[in-house]
Amino acid sequence: MGKAMSWVDRLLGREEKSGATAKKRLQMVLIHDRSDVSPGVLAQIKDEIIQVFVKHLDINPEDVVVNVDQDERESRLVAEVPLMALHANGRR
């Protein structure tokens, strides 16, 4: 969770309010509820997708980002593979 708040932040009310925390937590839990994919399985799928790119392309694992995107009531896994980085790595 969030890092400790300084007394200045507390005084100025900069701590995240519980309403905002509730929204974030709900958005996360509903990804798993809706897809019936547990958090652990989702993390494993992400890992394996990244490994596929790393295996076939000369690329660093950190260059591949796999995220869950939400649109209305649909969630989808979106993989981003920067091709510029691919080129640069190929020359190394």
């Binding site: 309010k17 519980s18 309403g19 509730a22 929204k23 958005q27 509903l30």
Partner: peptide
Amino acid sequence: AMVSRGEMLSIEDIIDILA
């Protein structure tokens, strides 16, 4: 009152989530 203090989900939050 709780919504305006940020301590309760707002209507907009709930609509965002449930769509």
